Simulated assay, not measured.
Amino acid sequence: MRTVTVELGDRRYPIHIAAGLLASAADHLAPLARGRTMAIVTDENVRPHADTLQAVLAAAGVRSEAIVLPPGEKTKSWEHLAGLCDRLLDLGVERGDHVVALGGGVIGDLVGFACAILKRGCHFVQIPTTLLAQVDSSVGGKTAINTRAGKNLIGAFHQPSLVLIDPSLLDTLPLREVRAGYAEVVKYGLIDDPAFFEWCEANGAALLAGDPAARDHAIAHAVAAKARIVAADEHETNGTRALLNLGHTFGHALEAEAGFSQKLIHGEGVAAGCSLAFAFSAAQGIGSGQDAGRVAAHFRSVGLPDGLAAAGIAASGATLVDHMRHDKKMAAGTLPFLLARGIGRTYLDKSVDLADVAAFLDAQPR
């Protein structure tokens, strides 16, 4: 088992990574249960894993109750947040209790936010079941729901007490979901680690084909990178953590245009968004067209969208920029963009003119 620690002083917490970890989860969860019933929140697609976890806990003498929600991005809503809080209150969850979020990014975000506000804050544990959640959303304490105005606009920073990552859970994941998570893996190389991007170019296909060694290496490397960045800038105040948003400003706009639906899932939006961020950087004379082409080519080679056409988005630049105006990073009418001087040389630019972004997007193939 590999362990990465998120260093946040007295709120530091471990991330344990091991194939088969779900089967031994009681070793880590039983001490947190305090002899009380442990709530497990999951969705219909992940219910078999919840059944396994409940059996594992029962064998260790830990009572549990599963709350099963509908799958999909639309579950990150006011309606489901209210319903989940009511269910947790009905179960008598106390501030000292730990709620288990067993699922992908949607479940992790929703459960984390519910725990941030329930009785002014209770504890939770992340057990991510998708590659995207394992390498990104389960670590770092960003929790949120979506609204009509945009994605993740209502939320809180609320760190988990523990993250348990079992890469073998990915064996049952549809290939599309694995690909979507892989976009977040690649992102870490594009931010500040060109050697890791080269590793992705050489090993991405094997990872997506289920190679355990490639998968485990990618997860451990990404988690360590995320933990380091979160420890340096937990609340995204000094610009370091903002680097993790590479591809997300463009990507969230594409997701919004797709109605936050299965037409374009989050990781696909991130892949297209990273490609667009590098292409825009090149168009502005900041980065090179060669690097932009290399990024797009890699996403394309593994079956991920590399721009508007591949993402199935035909909206105008003005329409997409209107989506961006709802971005939670807007400050005094200015939207910071993550741009790139090259692969592994991403930086935060607060001087981007949205008119230039709209014109750039209008020039992209549809």
Rank of each mutant, 00 (worst) to 15 (best):
V6N: 02
S301T: 09
G317Q: 04
V93D: 00
S288V: 12
H123E: 12
G344E: 04
M330E: 07
E201G: 04
V295R: 01
A355M: 07
G204K: 00
A359M: 08
L254V: 11
D27P: 02
Q290T: 15
V139A: 02
P336Y: 07
A340H: 13
S138E: 10
G96D: 12
P174L: 02
G267S: 08
A213D: 15
Y182Q: 07
V100F: 04
V99D: 00
A359S: 14
G312L: 12
V139K: 00
A277V: 09
I286E: 04
I191R: 00
L131R: 01
F157W: 13
G317P: 08
D171H: 13
C122A: 06
L162K: 00
T346P: 00
I40D: 00
E44Y: 03
C274T: 11
F299E: 01
A222N: 03
Q159P: 07
L118S: 02
G204D: 03
G103I: 07
R228H: 14
Y347T: 09
L169Y: 02
R176S: 13
A220M: 07
D211T: 12
E44N: 06
E73Y: 05
A309T: 11
D349Y: 09
V41L: 03
F337P: 00
R11Q: 15
L339A: 04
D90G: 14
A331T: 14
Q134M: 15
K187T: 12
K76Y: 08
D306I: 09
M38N: 05
R241F: 11
G150M: 08
L354K: 04
M330D: 07
H217V: 13
G344W: 03
F196K: 01
G35E: 08
Q290E: 15
E257P: 01
L348E: 13
G181M: 12
L304H: 05
G251E: 02
P71C: 12
F113N: 02
G267R: 01
G259S: 08
N203S: 12
I127G: 05
V357C: 10
A271N: 06
P305V: 11
R63Y: 06
D136E: 10
P48D: 04
T147L: 15
N45W: 04
I127Y: 04
T237E: 14
G83P: 05
S281C: 10
A242C: 06
V352W: 03
T319D: 14
A310P: 05
K350S: 14
L243F: 06
L246G: 07
G20C: 09
H98R: 09
G83S: 11
A318L: 06
D136A: 07
H123A: 13
C274E: 14
E73W: 03
P212I: 05
T249G: 08
D51C: 08
E236I: 09
F197R: 05
K187A: 11
M1Y: 05
E255V: 12
L89C: 10
D353R: 15
A101V: 10
L207M: 13
A314G: 12
R120T: 12
V125H: 02
A297H: 10
L207G: 01
H323I: 11
R95W: 08
E177Q: 15
L8K: 03
R179I: 11
R11N: 14
G342S: 08
